[in-house]
Amino acid sequence: MSKTIMTVDDSASVRQMVAFTLKEAGYGVIEASDGEDALVKLSGCSIHMLLTDLNMPHLDGIGLIRAVRQSPAHKFIPIVMLTTESQAEKKQEGKQAGATGWIVKPFSPPQLIAVIKKVLG
């Protein structure tokens, strides 16, 4: 059974690149454009992992991570945040909110897959 990963990013191009890479690697993908959109989509389905950007309108990455860690169905799933080199503080905040790991933008498809293997197997 293939595992399903949700990718959340307000940039359509990043989402596209991520979704394409994940599908190539055999994962199922659900796309969401921001934290709110992600929560709406999550209420109807179950995923194995969350991949989220931090800076997003409506509900940002930190807020999303906190909300997901509250939901019984997704309390223990791995969550990876997309950060940039300059966001050290945000990264720390994300970790405190319950993120499992992070990947620094810009990244290549193999780097992304390596991180996913590390947290999801």
Partner: peptide
């Protein structure tokens, strides 16, 4: 550690 979505077995496998 579980609450952060970490599966230690994957680290051992690595």
């Amino acid at each position: 550690i579980f609450a952060a979505g970490v599966n230690p077995v994957l680290l051992l496998a690595e």
